[in-house]
Design a protein around this nucleic acid. Structure first.
Lengths: 126, 126
DNA sequence: AGTAGATATCGACCTCTGTCAATGTCGACT
DNA sequence: AGTCGACATTGACAGAGGTCGATATCTACT
């Protein structure tokens, strides 16, 4: 079994319950939020409303290559590797971070515009 | 002991542990967040990262007078009065909403610029 | 004074969430 | 093949957080 997918795209087929960061249209102050929109927005904001995850995003963004692997992150945040991995997964699922595996390492990067889209939920651009 | 304070003005003196919405300087992408900043920002974002609270803010902002009392809010969100009161308190403590008591009613309003300042934590203005 | 109504607070319950130790998985290297 | 190292996943635990019923407080009104 485990015919290791050499076809790169299958990896993404299994994953991706559609990231929540496609907050295109409504905003908190533009109209009364539906229950569904409120839940989507809350889930997106929750991904970022956590001290450790904020620092993770901050550290990754401050990196020279704009990316970092898990081993670069455990020491700065002072938490165990499974915990860091867990936080990163939440940020990836929310559409804030991207994950690329190169060899043994997994490199995480901030998806361009993701934070701006998240912020736009609270304050639409202008 | 316990000389019950009959002094009316203690009410306001007791309150106000400085709202967290004075996120003036740093931002997630500008520099590596200190642990203290990360905690402050997370607490501010947590206040908004909840479906019911998002809808409360949304409903209040959509009101004609830009304000609403608790009795206006319990029915739209479909929750009990103590629960709504609890959520509103969290938003007030975070510096998102203001509270003004007129007669028997307590009127809540979105503090101008509060949502923008909160959003600026994720995406600095420009 | 006494009542009624709006809101805040308290206590309890249950779910969600952050953390860790242990284990599983996979790639690189000898 | 076998080992080592990086990362993900699982299970368990403690603490935080959302909800409600009951109660307290406070104001207007008769």
């Amino acid at each position: 079994m485990s015919i290791s997918v050499h076809n790169g795209s299958v990896d993404t087929a299994q994953r991706a319950p559609e990231p929540i960061a496609d907050a295109c249209c409504p905003s908190v102050t533009q109209e009364i939020l539906s229950i569904e929109d409120a839940q989507r927005f809350a889930q997106l904001l929750k991904a970022v409303a956590e001290p450790t995850r904020l620092r993770l995003v901050s550290i990754i963004a401050a990196q020279e290559n704009k990316e970092a692997c898990v081993c670069d992150l455990t020491e700065p945040v002072g938490l165990g590797q499974p915990t860091v991995s867990h936080h990163l997964k939440i940020l990836v699922d929310a559409g804030i971070l991207s994950r690329e595996k190169r060899g043994v390492w997994a490199y995480y990067a901030v998806i361009p515009g993701a934070l701006e889209r998240t912020a736009a939920v609270l304050s639409p651009v202008h």
